[in-house]
Simulated assay, not measured.
Amino acid sequence: MMVVRPIQADDWDALRELSRKTGTGFTSLQDDEQQVRGKLDAAMAAFGEETPEEALYLFVMEDTESQQVVGISAIESAVGLQDPWYNYRVGTLVQASRELNVYNRISTLSISNDHTGFSELCTLFLDPDFRHSKNGSLLSKSRFMFMAEFPQRFNDGLIAEMRGYSDENGVSPFWEGLGRHFFSIDFAHADRRSSTNKVFIAELMPKHTIYTNLLPESAQEVIGQTHDNTTPARKLLEGEGLRYTGYVDIFDGGPLLEAPVKDVRAIRESRYVKAHVDDQVGSGELYLISTTGFNDFRCCMSPVTLEGNHIVSITPAIAEALNVKAGDTLRIVPLSAQRRF
């Protein structure tokens, strides 16, 4: 059984191993020991007694049978409060001449800090061997259960930066067509640097509006496009209500999705119930089931039996995985957006 829980100090080896599998373009978890150590330290601080202004809530997915950590996901409580948060805003410029009978609509890119202070969904990675049985949905959507339980720790606006398109060799057409001209380094190098120090972005980033029709067609075509490995994650978030509104990553052109927190389906529709432990539980629709604790937050997915509006029957195995007993309060919501209470 899979359960999502806050990361712990002794998860270091598992976190480091996952970082070796993420690949080029996965900015928030790279094969860099210093960066990974910083992530773990930040998460330990976030779940400590004092909450940092920019808290990183880092979660792992654990197979309860093997006790193996197989995935990771995170929420940044706010972005851009200490280091600037950059992206491009995609716009439209119209140039027309009645005399020449010319009317041109030109796509533009403008540097933006519009999402400063927003909460961010980030660092979602599942070991390729475990990308089945809706494990990815649990790993991603469990974060919404945590946000629903502790809304005071997050901003009213939520964003998720999707990994942009790159080819099988890790080459980003967007970077080759735009970023390289200003930074004079490889995409992978710039991506690694941005995860630890963003000062160089402000120093070298073009300050004026960019006309995308001056870029190579290969770069124009991938603006707002998602990496093949990230497309399922994008569809999952769009199913929960996040939308692309015309902002893209400055390095690979990947889309930024956003939504008001209150409009996210799993947050809006989740509700409290009391646990009833029973060997006989119905099969069928999967639910997210989470506890109400902070440091001991747990979330898993399972069919349940609803007994009225306020009681849910769960199996002994689920109760053990969540470390709850009969009568404890749980938060539940259907895993998919199709089902309604």
Rank of each mutant, 00 (worst) to 15 (best):
V90M: 04
V90W: 01
V90S: 04
V90Y: 11
G91W: 06
G91F: 08
G91Y: 11
G91C: 09
T92H: 07
T92Q: 10
T92G: 00
L93C: 04
L93G: 07
V94Q: 11
V94K: 09
V94N: 06
V94F: 02
V94D: 10
V94T: 14
Q95P: 02
Q95K: 14
Q95C: 11
Q95N: 14
A96L: 10
A96H: 09
S97C: 09
S97I: 06
S97P: 04
S97W: 11
S97T: 12
R98Y: 08
R98E: 15
E99I: 02
E99C: 00
E99W: 00
L100I: 08
L100F: 12
L100Y: 12
L100W: 11
L100A: 14
L100S: 12
N101K: 13
N101G: 14
V102H: 11
V102R: 13
Y103E: 13
Y103D: 13
Y103T: 14
Y103C: 09
N104C: 12
N104K: 15
N104L: 15
R105V: 13
R105F: 01
R105C: 07
S107G: 12
S107R: 14
S107M: 02
S107I: 05
T108G: 08
T108K: 08
T108S: 06
T108V: 00
L109F: 05
L109Y: 02
L109H: 10
S110D: 14
I111Q: 15
S112A: 13
S112W: 08
S112P: 02
S112M: 09
N113Q: 09
N113D: 10
N113K: 08
N113E: 13
N113T: 15
N113P: 03
D114P: 04
D114G: 03
D114V: 07
H115F: 07
H115G: 05
H115N: 00
H115V: 03
T116W: 04
T116I: 05
T116R: 09
G117P: 03
G117L: 02
F118K: 07
F118L: 01
F118R: 08
S119A: 02
S119H: 05
S119R: 01
S119Y: 07
S119I: 00
S119G: 03
E120N: 02
E120D: 04
E120F: 06
L121F: 05
L121M: 05
L121T: 03
L121G: 01
L121S: 01
L121P: 05
C122K: 03
C122T: 14
C122V: 14
C122F: 03
C122Y: 00
T123M: 06
T123E: 02
L124P: 06
L124Y: 09
